[in-house]
Design a protein around this nucleic acid. Structure first.
Lengths: 217, 217
DNA sequence: TCGTTCCGGAACTAAGCGGTATCGTACGGA
DNA sequence: TCCGTACGATACCGCTTAGTTCCGGAACGA
């Protein structure tokens, strides 16, 4: 990772600053939260250091004491996001997917991951580091969860092995993205379920009925 | 449409300005082209009137003589894009779709529609007019073409009627979007074709093999 | 207690942008 | 020829932002 934040202050600064006040860890979190919330609201390009500070009830100096600027703060905030990788495992493919849908739709109000992604989109083409952390912390984890769900379904024989698994896995997030961009509305659970029932599940079962017979001929 | 551009100068200004030099129509086109090219390159938020003027080799006043500002210029540029709605009609669903893929992939170098869309994304949530023209000139035409292709395939009996046609139609553009955002690479024809063969076509044929039997029971 | 450092807040410089005005020049109708 | 306008270029004003610095106050170690 290119330019690490200065945020090894947990122990480092405490030892280095022999006398004097320590960096307040609660300020770190407040600033990171504010950055992500604003990122989801107004997007990366319109995000300013001043706004982040004001939103967190902090001074700009408090930010520059920790990060070199907007880019580093945003990257650090994304890196520090908690990843609760509890992959649904109900023993049924459809139930796993709908459980995932419920979880995604329930995020309402929170600094929605999806909205953070949208806010980042315009900045990705010109910032490689941002693009890397975007993949590592937002895209890949989502895809990995869906992939795991399919692999388990294959392992227990519920569906036949899926060739081009990566493509199938990306259908759900791709349609969510598309809806978010095209209609500008946050997809609700109903939307997720309709995609699952009308696209994803027919597709994996189609492969069972159209491809397998050919294999047995 | 809210604030029309002043660009009825083709005849209007020529008649009004009895003596004196006329607005140079070639400057209109150069400025619109520069606006779209820059929009695709750096996105709406980083787009500035000064940059557009410089890119077109013009002065800022030449822009303000025609449009009220950045927003109106961009909207007008999008509105003036030529729409060559030649829907492929080869008599075969797959051929129609792959023809469309070739055409989309061949746009390389030009101010790619898809990149213009990406550049607009971050500005859409806060600009209703921009969102409207975004739909009218970029999203809807693309979807309409794909929709037409499917409807013709249904009409000649190649595939059974597609319920949730809107969803099926959006799969291809959605996956293109997703790839562009996630990998940052412009999809080539091979990508289009693999989506067509591995997702779209299996899906519409799956509906034939799984839904119809239920209707006949 | 005393010195050091953080805190929020505000002031400040420098740079960039929107939008207007101006200048010399190039057209084009009368 | 003469007047009026568009043209590119530049200067200018007002505003916003990045990034720095300073202030009074508070927290901490010595």
């Amino acid at each position: 990772m290119g330019s690490d934040a200065i945020v090894n202050n947990d122990a480092g600064a405490a030892e280095r600053n022999l006398g004097g006040r320590h960096l307040d860890a609660s300020r770190d979190d407040a600033l990171r939260d504010a950055a992500l919330t604003l990122l989801a609201e107004i997007g990366y390009d319109r995000l300013t250091v001043e706004r982040i500070a004001a939103s967190a009830g902090a001074g700009k100096a408090t930010i520059y004491r920790r990060w070199s600027g907007k880019a580093e703060l945003v990257v650090d905030a994304l890196m520090c996001q908690k990843e609760e990788l509890a992959v649904p495992d109900t023993g049924d493919l459809r139930s796993d997917l709908t459980t995932l849908a419920q979880r995604a739709a329930a995020q309402k109000g929170q600094p929605l991951d999806i909205q953070v992604m949208i806010g980042l989109v315009s900045a990705l083409p010109r910032d490689p580091e941002l693009r890397e952390v975007f993949h590592e912390r937002l895209v890949n984890p989502s895809l990995a969860i869906i992939k795991m769900i399919f692999e388990r379904a294959v392992a227990r024989g519920e569906i036949p092995p899926v060739q081009n698994l990566d493509t199938v896995v990306s259908i759900l997030p791709a349609l969510v993205f598309h809806r978010l961009i095209v209609t500008g509305t946050v997809p609700d659970e109903q939307f997720f379920v309709s995609i699952i029932d009308q696209v994803v599940l027919p597709l994996v079962h189609a492969k069972a009925s159209t491809v397998e017979p050919d294999l047995f001929k």
